[in-house]
């Protein structure tokens, strides 16, 4: 009985998509690399196969320059067909910032994003309240936990119509909300005007998650914090659990 190959097959495999204009691809890749149980490889936007992957990351950046609308052009990349199939088969997909915008444009997540209410790019740490700690992306956090994660976007102002919002609430699809340090989702704590302070949502099945904040930027205390590690740890945990 050899243990080594088993260990290798247990590695949770992430794929990080590079669209033209992606600029957080390396950050996501490197964040995964800080977990012993995980490995990441890059995927090119023209690739069509996601063989052997456990989780796909659509990273932040300015795919296609964010020209027209953020994410509007990237969603037609060949790889997005594969990502759509992968998600339909239950694969885990996480979109961060521009990746979230791409998921919204492609219809894999409900809602839309428009320009920040203050019309300016904003980069700073914000507080997030974990609204649903049962998803594959948040199971290592506690329900209601407040975490500090940075945002960096010009277009992060989440919108959905009233029935859509009711449906999100009903199915616990609002995963993280902007809040103050004590955990209250106040207007003052909302950095971009997002409806109901929504910072991130998942699909009804729970295997596709998108958020504007950047968990990959806070995976090392040397560069500002480690509160984002929980997202990756949750993914690794849920994949590992599902295998056993």
């Amino acid at each position: 009985m050899s243990t080594l190959p088993q260990t290798e097959t247990r590695t949770v495999r992430f794929g990080v998509v590079i669209f033209p204009g992606s600029n957080c691809d390396a950050d996501s890749h490197d964040a995964v690399g800080t977990f012993a149980a995980a490995a990441a490889r890059y995927l090119w936007h023209k690739d069509t196969g996601l063989d052997g992957l456990d989780c796909v990351i659509l990273p932040g950046g300015f795919s296609y320059g964010d020209y027209l609308r953020s994410g509007a052009i990237a969603r037609f990349s060949p790889i997005m067909e594969a990502v759509t199939r992968f998600a339909a088969d239950g694969g885990l997909v996480i979109g961060i910032c521009n990746g979230f915008q791409i998921l919204l444009e492609s219809g894999l997540l409900p809602g839309a994003i428009h320009r920040n209410q203050a019309l300016k790019f904003v980069c700073r740490l914000v507080s997030l309240r974990v609204e649903n700690a049962t998803t594959p992306f948040t199971n290592k956090y506690n329900q209601g936990q407040v975490i500090r994660v940075p945002i960096a976007h010009m277009e992060g102002n989440y919108f959905i119509d009233a029935p859509g919002l009711a449906s999100l609430e009903q199915h616990k699809q609002i995963v993280v909300r902007y809040c103050d340090e004590s955990g209250s989702a106040t207007k003052e704590a909302n950095p971009n005007g997002s409806l109901a302070n929504i910072a991130g949502v998942c699909n009804r099945e729970g295997n596709v998650f998108g958020l504007m904040p950047h968990p990959e930027r806070v995976c090392d205390p040397v560069v500002g914090g480690a509160d984002g590690r929980g997202v990756f740890a949750s993914i690794i945990n849920s994949i590992t659990q599902a295998r056993t």
Partner: peptide, 13 residues
């Protein structure tokens, strides 16, 4: 154009 009733921050500014 932004849909009727949708917040338009640029327009508001």
């Amino acid at each position: 154009t932004p849909k009727k009733g949708i917040l338009d921050p640029q327009g508001a500014a």
